[in-house]
């Protein structure tokens, strides 16, 4: 899988209240949630025209706090193709994998600036920053999680598992 896009930069501890404040959790429609994505840290972000097709790069502990799956859904709904962060909070990581939002751990986030065009190759784990032409690596997922991602999410994986067991 290959992804290209423009980068938006966020800091450390971007918790789920900042990704999608609880006052907007009155729906589970990704398009509706997308309008308020990152609302309390970057007002109006979800309504920008250039968010569609972009890539978010953040610092440590991305997605901490609540278990709300509305957080990765809002990001996905906004058309953000991938989130790269120094580290992810546990429940956010599982939610992203379960719903098929591509994420990756990247340590050298300071090598990226807002607006950089980057390319991510998930099969090789390589990232290229077009501005600097430098190459970086993301940590590959363990095989079990890769299987879930390839299946198209956890529920699809469970269904194929069911048919395997029946055979």
């Amino acid at each position: 899988m290959q992804i290209k896009g423009k980068v938006f930069i966020f800091g450390d501890n971007i918790n789920t209240d900042l990704i999608i404040p609880a006052r907007y959790l009155l729906t589970s429609d990704p398009q509706e949630l997308a309008k308020y994505c990152f609302e309390d840290i970057r007002p109006g972000f979800g309504q920008r025209n250039d968010v569609q097709g972009s890539i978010v790069i953040a610092g440590e502990n991305f997605g901490s706090g609540s278990s709300r799956e509305h957080a990765p859904l809002a990001i996905k709904g906004a058309g953000i193709k991938c989130v790269l962060a120094k580290s992810f909070s546990r429940i956010f990581l599982r939610n992203a994998i379960n719903i098929g939002l591509p994420i990756g751990e990247l340590s050298l986030i300071n090598e990226f600036k807002e607006g950089d065009e980057i390319e991510i190759n998930f099969s090789s784990g390589k990232i290229v920053n077009r501005r600097t032409q430098k190459t970086f690596e993301i940590k590959p997922y363990p095989p079990f999680l890769q299987e879930i991602i390839i299946s198209g999410g956890w529920l699809n994986y469970l269904k194929t598992l069911g048919t395997k067991e029946e055979r």
Binding site: S28, S67, R68, E69, I91, R94, N95, N98, I99, G153, W154, L155, L158, K159
Partner: peptide, 11 residues
């Protein structure tokens, strides 16, 4: 966990 995990337990 998340909502999809809960859906998995439903399923």
């Amino acid at each position: 966990v998340g909502s999809t995990d809960l859906a998995g337990v439903f399923l």
